[in-house]
């Protein structure tokens, strides 16, 4: 285990260094943005004295290097700082603003991952098993189609489908169709569960209600990420099927299913988990469009709002969380790659 533990520690150290560099980049990028919170809030009519006074109040009159070190020092103490929206006597800490949003984002990501990852792996394994057959072609075509549409389009189409469930039969479109077709379409639409098209949740929303409310965004995101993971699973397994030990397994009389699951898959984990990690990271950092469509209070929307209002501490914290997410998920992927490789886990 020793070399493995060492590799993990090494990666962890590298991750921290990366995070440090990322913090510098985030800070400089934001410092270089034109305009600041004071000017943005007070508007064009404010006098330069008012602006200066406000700048002093929220501390952005200090030199950038000093502000950076203050920020980092605070962060090392677990304090993400205060939002610029704080007032005397009414402090709004960044942590307090972000925490519920981050929870919501994580919740949606977790629900999506629980559906999408097993689905993608299952489809990928089956596609590899029946490679070049009709099942393989169908799965490839369908997942490629869903990944090719923009997310907001998929999101609105799903919402539209749920809405038509009740409105289709009475619509002009249905009237123009032959009766039997309209009836069967209506019957098919009736099978669609009545998912909420607005994912408005708050801290009081009960757990299962929350799950129900994120159903549509979760389905949208699943459609978006499944293709990538499924295709990598299929490709990694098929790549392994050319190995001599797969021929050997065939000559030992193993069935195709056993060959794929027991002989190919264990050697294919490394590329698969890398892609899974990449997509999970996307679920946390890249879902702002879907959040907007379903009015879901996630961290993506929060960050966009904070950028608009130049609420720098919130933007910085969000960016840092996103960076940490990528680093952490990739670290986990690396660890899984090592753990599934006996050459690394059991050296000679």
């Amino acid at each position: 285990m020793n070399p493995v533990a060492r590799t993990v520690l090494e990666r962890l150290g590298l991750g921290l260094i990366t995070l440090f560099i990322v913090s510098i980049i985030i800070f400089s990028a934001i410092a270089m943005l034109p305009g600041d919170f004071a000017k943005a809030t007070l508007g064009q009519s404010a006098t330069s004295e008012t602006v200066a006074a406000f700048q002093r109040e929220i501390g952005i009159d200090r030199p950038p290097v000093e502000r950076y070190f203050v920020w980092v020092a605070q962060m090392l103490h677990g304090d993400f700082g205060s939002s610029f929206a704080s007032r005397t006597g009414y402090r709004r800490s960044v942590a307090e603003i972000i925490a519920p949003r981050l929870y919501n984002t994580m919740f949606l990501a977790a629900v999506t991952a629980l559906v999408a990852v097993p689905l993608a792996l299952g489809l990928g394994i089956l596609a590899a098993l029946y490679r070049n057959g009709w099942f393989d072609r169908l799965v490839n075509a369908v997942t490629l189609t869903t990944i090719s549409f923009p997310e907001f389009f998929v999101a609105y189409m799903l919402a539209y489908l749920v809405i038509s469930r009740d409105t289709f039969i009475g619509s002009d479109f249905a009237q123009s169709l032959p009766h039997w077709l309209a009836a069967s379409l209506g019957w098919a639409l009736n099978a669609v569960p009545k998912f909420p098209t607005l994912s408005n949740v708050n801290e009081q929303t009960p757990f299962w209600d929350h799950v129900w409310k994120v159903a549509l965004p979760a389905i949208t995101l699943t459609l978006v990420i499944v293709a990538h993971m499924m295709r990598m699973t299929r490709a990694a397994i098929i790549n392994m099927l050319a190995s001599p030990y797969i021929d050997m397994a065939r000559l030992k009389g193993m069935s195709p299913m056993v060959i794929v699951l027991r002989h190919a898959l264990p050697n294919a984990w490394a590329p698969i988990v890398t892609v899974v990690a990449f997509n999970l990271a996307y679920l946390i950092v890249g879902v702002v469009v879907v959040e907007v469509v379903f009015v879901y209070p996630g961290i993506g929307q929060l960050m966009v709002d904070a950028v608009k209002s130049r609420d720098v501490p919130v933007v910085q914290a969000c960016a840092l969380i996103f960076a940490a997410t990528y680093i952490l998920l990739n670290l986990i992927a690396d660890i899984i790659s090592i753990a599934t490789n006996p050459r690394l886990l059991h050296p000679r």
């Binding site: 001599p244 050997m248 000559l251 030992k252 009389g253 069935s255 050459r343």
Partner: peptide, 24 residues
């Protein structure tokens, strides 16, 4: 055929290093 392979007709390959599954 599959039931015969491995049980009544077995195979020994040229490169054992490549023909053993590295994962097991």
């Amino acid at each position: 055929r599959r039931r015969l392979r491995g049980s009544r007709i077995a195979y020994v390959a040229q490169s054992a290093a490549a023909s053993f599954n590295p994962a097991h």
